[in-house]
Design a binder for these strands. Structure first.
Lengths: 325, 325
DNA sequence: TTGTTGTTGGAATCTCCTGCCAACGATTTG
DNA sequence: CAAATCGTTGGCAGGAGATTCCAACAACAA
């Protein structure tokens, strides 16, 4: 008696042929395929994976047959990829990497971890506030883990929109479109300089006063860079930029090397530049007070752990403001 | 406990326990798992996937046992995810999405396609040159396919570095670090305006002449926006920005709506704004000639198809320059 | 030419995985 | 209390996949 094929639910979205093909992919085949690509040799690949060579050969044949594609050029000594094979290799690699992430993450849960929160944040937040805020969070929720990646503010928004992470922290001026936003922190920009700089010793500075000197810029996508450019423009003067560097520490080192003035947030200076013998003078301009905001796609439908993190970040900020009063 | 998960080193040889766990993941289980999450109900999920409920139940139990993790809270009516389940759900989704890509791409090869090239490019290249260049490429290589994504120049570089694509096209001024670069095209910026604008009718314009009027900016990460800001700054004047929009077409529509001047590449204007009854006047400034460059990680080790594309793009540009002579 | 080595591919066999059916316990609903 | 849902368990059967053995083939050395 042949197998009775079960009628699939008619309202399922993918077409029958698509699902049929999708089902013919399996992870061991992908693993073996990658092994062959690495070794360029089926026999060695089989050994490495602890399986008979003929079994591997069969799998590959079946796979090629199923998709009607040739993956390898069978050469006298070894196997070489066809274009189709190269395409598969690329996707197979990322798929298996993902599977590995699954295994790692789940085994973390098995060892007591109770939840993950995926976050994106800009440099300012990561350098200045997140270390302490996250550490406080872990104190209360020792069994949670955080997966944090740095991106410029614009990309943070994009990542949250696309679901790459649950919670994002970016500049308050970033266009967060349809996302929900909450106030996080306000930092204050300071002008970093060598103690022998003409401006050193001042109580505070207006940005325009700095425009007669060389500046060191952050990378061009950073909101500090964009905002200071804009401010210079508004002031009707130019910013004399000598170099753009990727991080606050790099800015400070450039300042130290007498390349010019740096413009970074106050807390970042304390963390990064304090021990470097530099001076930091507060910026008097209104835009020197920069808001950072928390963005989420939908606060109501956050995961339980994401909710915890969001509440924590907001509570920390609220406490801090209470203390200031 | 580490605060932040470290990115896995791709070269790392997996530990025995890891591989053991990795092997226990399989795609049908993931598919079923997702179905259960969608339906919040094992029985319906089983129906949807055309499989007996008992089989699904057993698979889930075995999976949970293998990882020592509870994925669901079994409720009287349906199943609800635990935090571990939510973590799995996220990864399972992207994994299956990837598998689907595999199936789609391979079946393309089965239907005659002979190769894929993954590309990243900035907006200027995509709007102005790639349509014709790619179409010429297809004329010669009808069986190849191109996977093209738009990103700002900085992200193009990043994507190529990370292996997200083989070939990138970005602004000549972008910092391409360790990548190999080749000249691609040079475009010329034009100032777009309504025919009734005071500046209309001029032969050419210096950028400084436009600074007395309102401007419409591209999105803040775009190189045109960054460069024009910088130029305004250098000129010691401000740019009166009324709005930032995401594309060249949007710029033209804003110009049409009398919001101010736009600054876009000449070819983009021909393509996008020609039929809108607008005037375009060339920018006289040196930086109005913008180089676009092709970037690759390593030209020697490109795939055969990638090599074809690179050669084509470079040849097209060489021909074009010969024609100009 | 001939033998050796290393390679892929095929046939027969066997094992174990996995899905089906039917029955059961638990809980809610009428 | 019965009926309806829902998830789980056990027995059974079929098949996918692995193993072993063998054939075909190319490259290379004697």
């Amino acid at each position: 008696m042949p197998l009775v094929t079960i009628e699939a639910d008619p309202q399922r979205s993918p077409t029958p042929s698509e699902t049929a093909l999708t089902r013919r992919v399996d992870l061991t085949t992908l693993r073996l395929f990658i092994a062959i690509c690495d070794e360029q040799n089926l026999t060695r690949a089989a050994q490495r994976e602890g399986i008979a060579a003929s079994a591997v050969s069969k799998r590959m044949n079946d796979f090629e047959l199923a998709f009607g594609v040739t993956l390898f050029k069978r050469l006298a000594k070894g196997m070489a990829l066809t274009p189709a094979g190269e395409a598969l290799l690329h996707h197979a690699r990322v798929t298996l990497l993902n599977v590995e992430k699954i295994a790692v993450e789940l085994s973390e849960y098995a060892h007591g971890v109770r939840g993950h929160v995926r976050m994106l944040a800009n440099l300012s937040a990561i350098v200045q506030y997140l270390p302490e805020d996250l550490s406080a969070f872990f104190a209360g929720h020792g069994l949670l883990r955080v997966d944090l990646q740095e991106r410029p503010s614009g990309q943070v928004v994009r990542g949250i929109e696309e679901g790459a992470a649950e919670i994002g922290i970016c500049s308050g001026e970033a266009d967060s479109r349809a996302l929900e936003g909450f106030h996080y922190r306000t930092d204050h920009l300071v002008v970093v300089m060598r103690p022998d700089h003409p401006l050193a010793g001042r109580e505070s500075l207006a940005f325009t006063e700095t425009l007669d000197f060389d500046h060191i810029g952050l990378h061009t996508a950073s909101s500090i860079y964009l905002r200071s450019q804009y401010a210079a423009t508004q002031a009707g003067k130019g910013m004399r930029l000598r170099i753009n560097v990727p991080g606050f520490d790099a800015v400070c080192r450039m300042v130290q090397a007498n390349m010019g003035l740096g413009l970074i947030p106050d807390c970042a200076f304390e963390v990064v530049g304090a021990g470097m013998g530099l001076s930091a003078i507060p910026l008097r301009d209104e835009w020197g007070r920069r808001a950072l905001k928390i963005v989420v796609r939908d606060a109501v439908h956050l995961s339980a752990t994401g909710r915890l993190m969001l509440d924590h970040l907001r509570a920390v900020e609220a406490d801090r403001r209470d203390d200031d009063l």
